[in-house]
Amino acid sequence: MTTVQITLPDQLAQEAQRAGLLSPANLERWLRDQLKTQRVDEFFAAMDRMAEVNDPAVMSPDEVAQEIAAMRAERRARNAN
C-alpha cells in the first residue's frame, strides 16, 4: 500500500470529509474511474487519429513494433509528469 498526501483548501477538505469523499474506498473508486475514463479517452483519440489517415500505408511487422514502442514511450513520458 502506498500513502498519498494531498493539499486542499481547508473548507474543501472539511466538506469532502463530511461527505465521506475522502475515505480510502471512495478515493480508490474515484481514481479507478478516472483511470478508466483516461484510457477510453486515449482510445478514442487514437481512433480519431486513425480516421484522419486517408490511405493507411502497409507496414511491416518491424514498423508496427516501432510504432507501438514509440506510443508506449510517449504514454510513459506523459504519465511521468
Rank of each mutant, 00 (worst) to 15 (best):
T2Y: 00
T2L: 04
T3P: 00
T3Q: 05
V4N: 02
V4M: 02
I6N: 01
I6P: 00
I6K: 04
I6G: 01
I6R: 02
I6W: 04
T7Q: 05
T7C: 01
T7F: 01
T7S: 06
P9L: 06
P9M: 02
P9I: 01
P9F: 02
P9S: 04
P9V: 02
D10L: 09
D10A: 13
Q11A: 11
Q11G: 05
Q11C: 02
Q11Y: 04
L12K: 03
A13S: 05
Q14Y: 05
E15R: 08
A16E: 00
A16H: 00
R18Q: 13
A19E: 10
G20I: 01
G20R: 03
L21E: 11
L21N: 06
L22R: 01
S23T: 15
S23G: 07
P24E: 09
L27N: 09
L27Y: 04
L27I: 13
E28F: 08
R29Y: 11
R29G: 09
R29T: 13
W30K: 12
W30L: 15
W30Q: 14
L31C: 14
L31E: 12
R32S: 13
D33M: 12
D33A: 15
L35T: 11
T37I: 12
Q38M: 14
R39C: 14
V40D: 14
V40M: 15
D41Q: 14
E42T: 12
F43Y: 15
F43H: 14
F44E: 13
F44Y: 14
F44R: 12
A45E: 14
A46H: 09
D48W: 04
R49P: 03
M50F: 12
A51C: 02
E52V: 02
V53C: 07
V53D: 03
V53I: 15
N54W: 07
D55H: 11
D55A: 12
A57T: 07
M59G: 03
P61L: 05
P61M: 04
D62L: 06
A65I: 01
A65S: 08
Q66A: 12
Q66V: 07
Q66Y: 06
E67T: 06
I68G: 03
I68P: 01
I68S: 05
A70G: 01
A70W: 01
A70D: 05
A70E: 03
M71R: 07
M71V: 09
M71A: 15
R72H: 06
E74V: 00
R76F: 12
R76G: 02
N79K: 10
N79H: 10
N81P: 07
